[in-house]
Simulated scan of single mutants.
Amino acid sequence: MRAVLLSDVIAAARALRGVPASGRAVVCARMLREAHWADRHTRRLGKVHAAWGNGTLKAAAEAYGPVGAGRFDDPEFCECLQMVAAALAEKCRAHSCKRGLHAHMGF
């Protein structure tokens, strides 16, 4: 997966906000995998993946369709932000990231 920026996290949280709460963890994990796969595809073939984009988390999240703006006064959106941040932190811890999330990730 490409380097993860704040805009990626917000896009992923916005996508999760459009998913029923019971399915968010599955979709969150899927977005991370899809971003990783798209990055590998893009680096190997020199073109973006048709469904998952260019390897950024934002592009993978946008594949889930248009969603409303994320609002920090929306408790569910804040929960989605927390879910994305926790998933990224867990993946990083599991892979001993020292140079940033994208450097050693193998989703």
Rank of each mutant, 00 (worst) to 15 (best):
45 L>S: 12
23 G>V: 01
76 E>K: 08
32 L>D: 05
62 E>H: 00
29 A>G: 15
58 K>I: 10
15 A>Y: 02
56 T>C: 09
87 A>I: 08
78 C>S: 10
51 A>F: 00
33 R>M: 13
26 V>I: 14
59 A>R: 03
44 R>V: 06
43 R>V: 12
60 A>H: 10
19 V>S: 01
88 L>K: 08
87 A>L: 07
70 G>K: 00
43 R>H: 09
10 I>D: 12
43 R>D: 04
11 A>Y: 00
59 A>W: 05
16 L>A: 06
34 E>S: 05
16 L>R: 02
7 S>Y: 10
15 A>S: 03
40 R>C: 12
75 P>A: 12
28 C>G: 03
54 N>C: 14
38 A>W: 08
27 V>S: 07
61 A>F: 03
19 V>F: 00
19 V>A: 06
70 G>M: 05
59 A>K: 03
55 G>D: 08
14 R>W: 01
24 R>A: 07
53 G>P: 02
20 P>L: 03
16 L>P: 05
14 R>S: 14
88 L>N: 12
77 F>R: 04
5 L>C: 04
18 G>S: 15
76 E>Q: 15
16 L>G: 03
17 R>E: 13
39 D>Q: 10
86 A>I: 10
32 L>M: 12
23 G>E: 06
30 R>I: 08
48 V>Y: 04
74 D>H: 07
70 G>A: 05
85 A>V: 13
24 R>F: 10
68 G>C: 07
7 S>T: 14
18 G>Q: 11
46 G>D: 13
79 E>F: 10
68 G>A: 12
76 E>F: 08
70 G>W: 01
80 C>P: 09
20 P>E: 10
36 H>G: 13
40 R>Q: 15
53 G>C: 10
42 T>W: 08
29 A>L: 14
8 D>Y: 02
24 R>Q: 15
11 A>C: 05
91 K>A: 14
48 V>D: 14
84 V>Y: 04
55 G>M: 02
26 V>Q: 11
54 N>M: 07
31 M>R: 00
34 E>P: 01
75 P>C: 04
51 A>W: 00
50 A>G: 13
25 A>E: 15
81 L>P: 10
27 V>I: 15
45 L>A: 11
24 R>K: 12
73 D>W: 08
24 R>W: 12
46 G>E: 09
32 L>V: 15
43 R>M: 09
14 R>H: 02
